[in-house]
C-alpha cells in the first residue's frame, strides 16, 4: 500500500509535463521533467473499495515530498497515521496509539521498484515494467491505463487522470489481484515551493517502537 503513495507523488509531480500533448509523447515529456521536481505538497482523498465492504470507505489526508527522498503522508485530521520517509528510513507513526513502526524499505522496493524516485527514468524503463493499455484525452483531462508486466504481483493495474492544462494529477487508482482497489484524488497541489522546516520530522519520544525488520 505504501508503494501506492509514492506512485501518487511521483506521477503527480511529473504530470504537468503531459499537458496539451494528446499522444504518448506526453509520457516522454513527463519522464524527462521528473528530475526537475524538487518539492511537492498536496491534499488527497483516499477511497478504498474492498470485496468485504458493501460501499467504499474514504479518508482525507495530506502529503509532502522533497527530493531526493524525503516523504510524508498523513491521513486524518488530526492525523491518525503518518508515514515518514527519509532516505531508506521509513517509519509509520500512529500518534493516538503512541506507536512508531520502523519499516524495512527493501520490502517495498521488491515489487516493481515503485518506491524509487523518479518513478521511471526513461520511457524504456516504464515500458519494461508496465504495458500502456490506453492513453486518451477528453477535454482537459488525460487518462492513462497501465498494466504491470509482472503478472504474478498483487498489483494488476494503474489508472491515472490529470489535468492537461495545469498538469496536476486529479486521480490515481490502483487495482489489485483480490478485486480491491485504491483511488486517490488530489487537490491543492504545490510544486517546487519551499516546505516548512520540520515537515519530515515527528517527535516520537515516549512512543513504543516496533522494528519490523527484526
Amino acid at each position: 500500500m505504501f508503494r501506492s503513495l509514492l506512485v501518487s507523488v511521483c506521477l503527480g509531480a511529473a504530470l504537468p509535463a503531459l499537458a496539451a500533448v494528446p499522444d504518448t509523447a506526453v509520457l516522454d515529456q513527463w519522464i524527462a521533467r521528473q528530475v526537475a521536481i524538487r518539492s511537492l505538497s498536496a491534499d488527497f482523498t483516499q477511497t478504498r473499495a474492498l470485496r468485504v465492504l458493501r460501499n467504499p470507505v474514504a479518508a482525507k489526508g495530506k502529503l509532502w515530498f522533497q527530493a531526493p527522498g524525503d516523504f510524508r503522508w498523513e491521513v486524518g485530521s488530526p492525523p491518525k497515521t503518518i508515514v515518514l520517509r527519509k532516505g531508506d528510513d521509513i517509519r509509520v507513526i500512529e500518534p493516538a496509539k503512541q506507536v512508531v513502526k520502523i519499516e524495512a524499505v527493501e520490502l517495498g522496493k521488491r515489487e516493481a521498484g515503485l518506491m524509487e524516485f523518479p518513478f521511471v527514468r526513461s520511457r524504456a524503463d516504464l515500458e519494461k515494467r508496465f504495458k500502456i493499455l490506453d492513453l486518451r484525452t477528453e477535454g482537459v483531462e488525460c487518462r492513462v491505463k497501465l498494466e504491470p508486466r509482472d503478472t504474478q504481483g498483487f498489483l494488476t493495474g494503474i489508472a491515472l487522470g490529470f489535468d492537461t492544462e495545469t498538469g496536476h494529477l486529479r486521480s490515481l487508482e490502483m487495482s489489485f489481484r483480490d478485486g480491491s482497489s485504491l483511488r486517490n484524488e488530489f487537490s491543492n497541489i504545490q510544486v517546487n515551493e519551499k516546505l516548512p522546516a520540520g515537515t519530515f520530522a515527528f517527535d516520537t519520544a515516549g512512543f513504543r517502537v516496533i522494528d519490523a525488520g527484526r
Binding site: 505504501f2 478504498r48 479518508a59 491521513v75
Partner: peptide
C-alpha cells in the same frame, strides 16, 4: 475507519 486510513496492506487484510 481504520480500513479507510491505514497504509499497511497487512492491516487491510486483517481488518477485511
Amino acid at each position: 475507519e481504520q480500513l479507510a486510513e491505514t497504509v499497511s496492506p497487512v492491516e487491510v487484510v486483517q481488518l477485511s
